[in-house]
Amino acid sequence: MTAAGTLPSEKDIWRWLEDVPDPEIPVVSVVDLGIVRDVAVDKGGAVVTVTPTYSGCPATAVIAMEIETALRKKGLDPVRLETRLSPAWTTDWISDEGRSKLKEYGIAPPVQGTSCAGAMKQANATVACPRCGSENTEEISRFGSTPCKASWRCRDCLEPFDHFKSF
C-alpha cells in the first residue's frame, strides 16, 4: 500500500525498480540491464520476474535481495521473486540509457546486435575507448573484473579499460 492508501500500479513498480542499482556496477539499474522481465501486482504485494545475466554471477542473489528490500520499503508485501531462464538474457537488452551510463562510468558498453558467439569477429566490430573515444583498441583478456566484462586497452591513449562484453 502506498501512503495515499491506493494500490501501486505496475508502472509504479517499474519506476521504483529503476532506482535499484546493480551491486557490481552501481551506475546502472536492474531495469537498465534488462534483467527484469516482468512485474505484476498481486494482493497488495508484487511478483517480479528476473533473469540471470550469467548462471554463476555472484550478484544474482544480492540483486534479488535488493529488489525485495526496495519494494518492501514502498509498502509492498509480500514481494515474490521468480527466475526465468528462457529466453536467455542478452546484452542486447541493455537499454540505451544503460549504455550511456556505462560509458560515462568508464566501461565500454557492448556493441548492439553482436550478442551471439563469434558475432564480434564476424562483424569486425570495434570497441571504442570510453576515455578518448578512439576505436584503435585491443582485447587483453576475454575476462575481466566480473563475469560480464572483458579487459581491453586503448592503443592511442594507452588506457586499459573494462568492456561489458557482448553476450
Binding site: 550469467y54 548462471s55 554463476g56 554471477c57 583478456s141 576475454r142 575476462f143 575481466g144 573484473s145 563475469p147
Partner: peptide, 20 residues
C-alpha cells in the same frame, strides 16, 4: 593475472550451471 581471472570466471560459469 589475465589467465587467473579467466579461469576463475570459467569456473564460476560452470558452478552456476551445476546449480541449475
Amino acid at each position: 593475472l589475465e589467465e587467473d581471472i579467466a579461469m576463475a570466471n570459467v569456473g564460476l560459469d560452470l558452478i552456476g550451471q551445476t546449480k541449475l
